[in-house]
Amino acid sequence: MTASLIIAALGSKAFWLLYLWLGSAWGASELSARKGYGEKWGLGCGLLLSVVGLVIWLIVPPKPDSPWVQKKRREAANEGEEPTAV
């Protein structure tokens, strides 16, 4: 009885760690695509490095013609300000 409880406790922890791993891979993939590098680079970093890969893509600067920068320019134009350098 005790062995099955230990296995069940390990299974639930593994389940949440799996969600964390998949969520960080998805987040890194989205960030890299929005910053103009493509989904594959972020997906690879997220799958191999887990949460660290997501943090890396938060730090990586966007390309000048990426959707990330274009959105900032549109928002700045709507406010009547000059776009700031990213």
Score class of each variant (00 low, 15 high):
E30D: 10
K71H: 10
R74A: 13
A28E: 03
A9E: 00
G27A: 15
E82W: 06
L18E: 06
W26H: 08
S50W: 14
K72M: 12
W68R: 06
V69Q: 09
V60H: 03
R73C: 07
L48H: 07
K35Q: 07
L5K: 00
G46C: 05
V86A: 14
P62I: 04
G38F: 01
S66G: 09
W57V: 01
G36C: 00
P67V: 07
G80R: 07
L47Q: 07
I6P: 00
V52A: 13
A3T: 04
L18Y: 12
N78H: 13
W68Q: 13
W57I: 02
P64G: 09
R34C: 05
W16Y: 13
L10W: 02
Y37D: 05
W21F: 09
L20P: 00
F15G: 07
I59L: 05
D65Q: 11
S32N: 02
K40P: 01
E30M: 07
P61F: 02
G44F: 10
K13A: 13
A8W: 00
P67F: 06
V52N: 06
L18V: 06
A25F: 02
T2W: 11
E30R: 13
V86L: 11
A76K: 01
G46V: 09
G36L: 05
V55K: 05
V51H: 12
G46M: 01
W41N: 08
E30V: 12
Y19C: 15
L10A: 12
I56C: 04
S32Q: 00
L47V: 15
T84M: 10
A14E: 12
S50Q: 14
Y19N: 14
E30P: 00
A14T: 08
E39A: 13
M1Q: 05
V55F: 07
M1C: 06
W57M: 11
K13W: 13
